[in-house]
Write a protein that binds this DNA or RNA. Structure first.
Length: 885
RNA sequence: GGGCGGGUAGCUCAGGUGGCUAGAGCGACAGCCUUACAAGCUGUAGGUCACAGGUUCAAGUCCUGUCCCGCCUACCA
């Protein structure tokens, strides 16, 4: 220990502790226990490579809660795992395959899945090691994966159950289709992006008339699939045309003019081309009027043979160009008007999605959504921040059927079998033996489930459901879910619904939705934007602890939390500060070891600085605990930071030094005790360094149980022992005096080496007594003084600087050193400020209503303030007059 | 179109139920290698709390309106 380096090197320290914790089983949760349970399931990271900044924040906050509760004596479970993540992971693999010169289709389903599992093994291992590097105290023995055997059984069980309850069904309906991924996707996976497009005004000639009906569209190519033109039934402009037909340009098909209330007479030309196969609204209109659904696109977004020959095999975009060109040539195009509008893109591959009619599996989520709303209203789940509840309700109240089948390979195959003989549909855990028709041959549905289906079961599938396990009994519903607000609908809402559907109970009691990490401009950090901070690089540069501190310290409850490099630096400086405070204490403890018995320590309890620091610590414990209890991580971090740095280091350790110079070790021993408690308080945020220091500090003292604990990880969470307002008030006075003396020295440039005399005039006997007792003890620790005089009344020495604190005056004779102009300026500034403050206080007190209606306490405080200010004002005025003469 | 969040020091942000003279970190300026820490210490400067009204004895905090910024949501072709 003798040679602790001056600069804290996180790389030296952080590496060794994870293994130590792991070997001692501190993170392991008991399936049955007398302790109260506390459980969090990790939002399983996608196996798509490395951890990003969002994971770092999310998991840091979870680890803070978990470590805190563990120290509080709970039976803590943090369930870890990863998510197969369906399409995203497939896309990554497809990119790899392309680099290798092959493709998904070339490999075939079986080989492709094999490659995916290889990838999973690498990626999941890498992610776990990164989480461990971040200090995450998950119960790693329980690690799960959404596609592993147990979870797959849970998925099949849930599916079959919901199918049997009639909530899962197959239907032909209009869905969002991704021509790139060749699959249906849900509304949530479609991201509307504003683009600059055009309004194409096109003339449709009305048959048996010389009238041209003008329509406007943003997607002219879809006119190849038009099967009607619609106008509003009350639109006088078009009344006479309803029931007639138009000749569809380019296709030369006759299509009817129909009347439908959906049409907005104000918008465009008031006439709407109807393409039931390629637009959601047109689809609805088509159903109402029994129109043909003319699909003109292939699944990958090319024109099929339902369109006129010349367009077949063109891409969507080429077709649009060609159609516009032809319309212009044939004089059907009226005009092109620029028009900005939102176009849906697949959030995974960024391709423009195509509304398409398709046979898919759906889940009717409405009944479960209603239960979820009810449960939330009853307080079975609460959202933090509260505003998220509104968003949740709004989504739930307007929820639509969830298309759950994906025409992909990587995922849970639907547990649906079709009879080869009669096509009867069976939902079952395994291949059925025999169909009702007597046949015994079946084929399983080719599709896989939306990846969110399996993650929706995560809180109970990871605990062994559908078996009735001890884990479920002990930990379900879990205590809290921590995740970003951006996946409230994708994931949180579905977990609540599926939890109610499968377990008859919500999956968690609280949902803490934190902000998304952003850069200094408030832009969300993302790899694609290139504004992202890489957690691993950051950890390498600053250390995990510093990084975690910065994350906790910036995590305010706003939607986008900016994380600045400078804040991570601040974190690093803080860890260094802690390191050095510990160094100081440990070095001195070698000279003055803490006595085995506490008896000798009681003697020191009389010391004001000890009473003060213990009171402040007590206050800090209370504030920090309250903060984390309410998910105010930033407040917890800031409270601990401010106390440790600005009270403990800046003041208390200076007091302790002073005592040590007189061979009085009590204050040091208390410093060691305070630091030990601080290590416990900081441990949830700063796990590694606090363990390192805690191991070296004596932790028997006032914490008798700690001797049995081998780690701060399982040391008890500190309890406040009570505050001492008298000691705090006295100390505040002393500090004020010291600060004023420092201020004079600083502003008048008195060299640090120069000793000064301090004359203090104080009319109050009590104050004088206190100052006499403490000032001589403390002052030398903070500034160089040659002599301190304290008296009821004192003449102001000529050529002296002055400070005023209420009725107390401090004079520092500076003959030969003082710059009278500078002193005058200094006092004038203070005087001006005091005059302002006096005026404000007077104004309030002169209002009779204030005296009458404000609480007595507030009035008394104001009076006291004014009194003090008036005294200060008078003193300053007198001194200024003297200076001027 | 609806809804939500934000506008406080040069920058990034705190300021639960209205009440101490509006705070922190970073940055700026000045001075210090004071025997834990120069990744440090000390001091200083810097804010009509977006704007306009209102409620109140009292408003950064509550209400109304306005202006910006951001986000979520919606089928306007």
């Amino acid at each position: 220990m003798a040679s602790l380096p001056k600069i804290y090197d996180p790389q030296e320290i952080e590496g060794k502790w994870h293994q130590f914790w792991q070997n001692n089983g501190f993170f392991h949760a008991e399936a049955t226990s007398d302790k109260p349970p506390y459980a969090i399931v990790i939002p399983p990271p996608n196996i798509t490579g490395s951890l990003h900044i969002g994971h770092a924040l999310d998991n840091t906050l979870q680890d803070c809660l978990i470590r805190w509760k563990r120290m509080q004596g709970y039976n803590v479970l943090w369930m870890p795992g990863t998510d197969h993540a369906g399409i995203v992971t497939e896309l990554i693999m497809e990119r790899k395959l392309a680099e290798e010169g092959t493709s998904r289709n070339a490999l075939g389903r079986e080989k492709f899945i094999e490659r995916m599992w290889q990838w999973k093994d690498e990626s999941a291992g890498y992610i776990v090691s990164q989480l461990q590097k971040l200090g995450c105290s998950c119960d790693w023995e329980r690690e799960r994966f959404t596609l592993d055997e147990g979870l797959s059984e849970a998925v099949r069980t849930a599916f079959v159950k919901l199918y049997n309850e009639g909530l899962i069904y197959r239907d032909t309906y209009m869905v969002n289709w991704c021509p790139q991924c060749n699959t249906a996707v849900s509304n949530l996976e479609v991201e509307p992006i504003e683009i600059d497009g055009n309004f194409y005004h096109i003339r449709y000639p009305v048959i048996d008339s010389d009238v041209m009906l003008e329509i406007a569209t943003t997607r002219p190519e879809t006119m190849l699939g038009d099967t009607a033109v619609a106008v509003h039934p009350d639109d006088e402009r078009y009344q006479h045309l309803i029931g007639k037909k138009v000749l569809l340009p380019l296709s030369n098909r006759e299509i009817p003019i129909i009347a439908d209330e959906y049409v907005d007479t104000e918008f465009g030309t008031g006439a709407l081309k109807v393409t039931p196969a390629h637009d959601v609204n047109d689809y609805e209109i088509g159903l109402r009027h029994d129109l043909e659904q003319r699909t003109i696109f292939t699944q990958d977004g090319y024109i099929n043979e339902k369109a006129p020959k010349k367009y077949v095999n063109l891409s969507r975009w080429d077709c649009r160009k060609k159609v516009v060109e032809d319309l212009e040539n044939e004089n059907f195009l009226v005009k092109i008007v620029p028009h900005r509008h939102a176009v849906g893109h697949h959030d995974r591959c960024n391709t423009v999605v195509e509304p398409a009619i398709s046979l898919q599996w759906f889940m009717n989520v409405r009944p479960l959504a209603e239960r979820a709303i009810e449960a939330t209203k009853k307080g079975e789940v609460t959202f933090i921040p509260e505003r998220e509840t509104t968003r949740f309700f709004h989504w739930m109240e307007n929820i639509e059927p969830w298309p759950i089948s994906r025409q992909r390979w990587w995922g849970h195959r639907l547990p649906i079998w079709y009879c080869n003989a009669c096509e009867a549909v069976t939902a079952a855990m395994d291949t059925p033996q025999q169909c009702e028709c007597g046949a015994t041959d079946f084929h399983q549905d080719e599709d896989v489930l939306d990846t969110w289906f399996s993650s929706g079961l995560w809180p109970f599938s990871t605990m062994g459901w559908p078996e009735e396990t001890d884990e479920l009994n002990t930990f379900y519903p879990t205590s809290v879910l921590v995740t970003g607000w951006d996946i409230l609908f994708f994931w949180v809402a579905r977990m609540i619904m599926l939890g109610l559907g499968c377990m008859d109970e919500v999956p968690f009691r609280k949902v803490y939705l934190h902000g998304l990490v952003a850069d200094e401009k408030g832009q969300k950090m993302s790899k694609s934007k290139g504004n992202s901070i890489d957690p691993l690089e950051t950890i390498a540069d600053y250390g995990t602890d510093a990084f975690r501190f910065a994350l906790a310290n910036t995590s305010t409850p706003i939607p986008y939390v900016p994380l600045l490099e400078s804040q991570i630096e601040a974190g690093k400086r803080f860890t260094n500060k802690i390191w050095n405070a510990a160094r100081f204490i440990l070095m001195n403890l070698e000279k003055f070891p803490v006595p085995a018995e506490n008896a000798e320590m009681t003697e020191g309890q009389e010391l004001l600085e000890i009473q003060w620091i213990q009171s402040r610590l007590s206050h800090t414990i209370k504030t920090a605990t309250d903060a984390i209890e309410n998910f105010r991580f930033y407040e917890m971090a800031q409270t601990l930071y401010a106390f440790l740095w600005h009270e403990f280091c800046d003041w208390y350790l200076e007091f302790a030094k002073q005592r040590l110079s007189k061979n009085e070790p009590e204050a040091l021993w208390v410093a060691a005790d305070v630091l030990e408690q601080m290590m416990r308080l900081l441990h949830p945020i700063i796990p590694f360094l606090t363990e390192e220091i805690w191991q070296q500090l004596p932790h028997g003292g006032n914490n008798p149980t700690a001797n049995d604990n081998a780690s701060v990880t399982v040391a008890p969470w500190p309890e406040p022992i009570g505050e001492n307002p008298t000691a705090e008030a006295t100390m505040t006075n002393i500090m004020e005096v010291i600060e004023n003396i420092r201020s004079i020295r600083g502003e008048l440039n008195v060299p640090i080496g120069a000793s000064v005399e301090v004359h203090i005039q104080s009319p109050n006997t009590e104050d004088r007594k206190r100052l006499e007792t403490y000032l001589e003890q403390y002052l030398p620790a903070f500034t160089r003084v040659s002599n301190i005089t304290i008296a009821e009344s004192l003449p102001k020495p000529s050529a002296s600087a002055e400070a005023v604190i209420g009725d107390l005056a401090i004079y520092i004779p500076l003959a030969g050193v003082i710059d009278f102009e500078a002193e005058k300026a200094r006092l004038t500034k203070r005087y001006d400020q005091t005059v302002k403050d006096v005026a404000a206080a007077q104004k309030t007190l002169e209002n009779p209503n204030f005296i009458e209606r404000a609480p007595e306490k507030v009035v008394a405080q104001k009076r006291e303030l004014l009194e003090r200010l008036l005294v200060e004002q008078e003193k300053l005025a007198r001194s200024l007059t003297m200076l001027s003469s």
